[in-house]
Design a protein around this nucleic acid. Sequence first.
DNA 1: GCAAATTAATGATTTATTCAAG
DNA 2: CTTGAATAAATCATTAATTTGC
Lengths: 122, 122
Amino acid sequence: MEKPNSPPKPRSRWNPKREQIRILEAIYSSGMVNPGREEIKSIRAQLQKFGEVGEASVHYWFQNRKSREKRRHRQLQAAQRSKYSADTRVLSSTSSTSTTSTSTSVQSKPMTEIHNSPPANT
Amino acid sequence: MEKPNSPPKPRSRWNPKREQIRILEAIYSSGMVNPGREEIKSIRAQLQKFGEVGEASVHYWFQNRKSREKRRHRQLQAAQRSKYSADTRVLSSTSSTSTTSTSTSVQSKPMTEIHNSPPANT
DNA sequence: GCAAATTAATGATTTATTCAAG
DNA sequence: CTTGAATAAATCATTAATTTGC
């Protein structure tokens, strides 16, 4: 009755759980972008609570994280620039910093207020 | 008998027609998963032929579509994983580098390039 | 058959994160 | 370090399916 076709899915690679990623991100963003052996052991211990993980995987994770961040940095958001999307929540805080930036203000003008049309129901 | 008494129906949301959904699906599956403002306008124009719809709704549709597709994949993945995860109980006492477990397929040179822990980083 | 009650889908809001500029 | 712009994730809310009792 069940699927007799169980693919021999050998866990070839670690598949992090959401919780684990949250932990890793937290650590990463707290400044530890390049943990040493001891630190990796400690991190691994925390992650183990949510699933099996090897030290190497933890190490790789940090390597990849940093690498990708950089790459994205390089790649820029050309894509984003050219294809705007809609509706953003304006989180502008009242910062009193002398916003002298009257210079090159690149206003993209997204559809901040496209709220919205009369849904003529059937 | 008409409806002199308009129902206090708070048309809260758009109710897409079948044709409209077909169009949206087609566009989505053609690769445009995150249309920008201009594209949304264009898409909306097409949809209007079959019923009233706002730009915001179009935007929301794509957002939700992508988001939920992702979520589904995650759920499936998780399900799959839990099916096969019974893992070795790595109780190896001593420090061990023997990562004989099934997890990471890194064997010989696990963390070769792990730079030694920086002494008292911060 | 039908309508109230319950559940599943999904449109609309809100919140948190990301990246880059200043 | 702060802030602006845009997104994606999480959440809320309402509508459509469906189940159930009559």
